[in-house]
């Protein structure tokens, strides 16, 4: 039986007096796509940072693709790809050099071939020899998605990937996200954009003050249902 992409129980995390996460349980099967909704300060980024193994929880257990990060940290990290508003790209290296560098660091067998393949998939071949720093925000975000995919991760974590994109660039990224990865690639998409989140995912959850307060299956959900959970006061009104 295939291990789930994420199996988390009782994740908690405090920052001083602030309880950013309060006992989050989450299970995401391989190949499933999860939209993570919540207002600012709800705990979305903290949850993603813990799932991305950039931050340790104060309590709770976590397994990524069946691996316990406390016992096998490097193997667990090799299963994860990360796309955020920061590009994680070197502005003075070309698009190709960036992809080759990250491919080598992730132990990809043929970094040059993988970089070429990803540039083609993301329709960036024309910009392959341009420094990443001169690319538009939309192209840069596509290159960042390619960077996150160099090692074909089992789990892709997306933290507000549409921030700062114009509608055309957002369309481009949306199209890439729909086709990115194989049937076994799972992703968690943290976003404020309810329509995008529902369109790109199979299931969704809403975080409020560090707790999951609502969850459902995306194809069967009306955006208003999420909005009501997202802003309970407005929903009640």
């Amino acid at each position: 039986m295939t291990a789930p992409a994420i199996a988390a129980t009782g994740l908690t995390r405090r920052f001083g007096q602030i309880r950013a996460l309060r006992g989050v349980d989450l299970r995401l099967e391989r190949g499933r796509r999860l939209a993570l909704f919540g207002a600012n300060g709800a705990g979305k980024t903290t949850l993603l940072r813990i799932l991305g193994l950039g931050l340790a929880p104060d309590a709770g257990s976590l397994a990524i693709d069946g691996l316990d990060p406390r016992k096998d940290a490097q193997a667990a990290r090799s299963r994860i790809g990360w796309l955020a508003h920061a590009s994680l790209l070197y502005a003075d290296l070309t698009a190709r050099q960036n992809l080759e560098f990250w491919s080598r660091l992730y132990g990809v067998e043929d970094p040059a071939a993988r970089a070429g393949q990803l540039l083609e998939e993301m329709q960036l071949t024309a910009y392959a020899e341009e420094p990443a720093g001169i690319l538009s925000r939309g192209l840069s975000q596509r290159l960042s998605l390619a960077r996150a995919m160099v090692h074909e991760p089992a789990l892709l974590l997306l933290d507000e990937p549409f921030t700062g994109l114009d509608p055309y660039a957002a369309d481009g990224l949306r199209a890439r996200l729909k086709t990115t990865g194989g049937a076994d690639t799972s992703f968690v998409l943290a976003t404020h954009r309810i329509d995008d989140g529902l369109a790109l995912s199979d299931q969704w959850i809403v975080l409020t003050r560090g707790k999951i307060v609502a969850a459902g299956s995306s194809p069967e959900t009306d955006p208003q249902t999420v909005a009501d959970a997202f802003f309970p006061a407005r929903g009640a009104a």
Partner: peptide, 18 residues
């Protein structure tokens, strides 16, 4: 400063290396 611009130090931190 080169690492700070694209938050690439965080990227290195997440890579599966020592």
């Amino acid at each position: 400063d080169v690492e700070r611009r694209g938050d690439t130090l965080a990227g290195l931190f997440r890579a599966p290396i020592d």
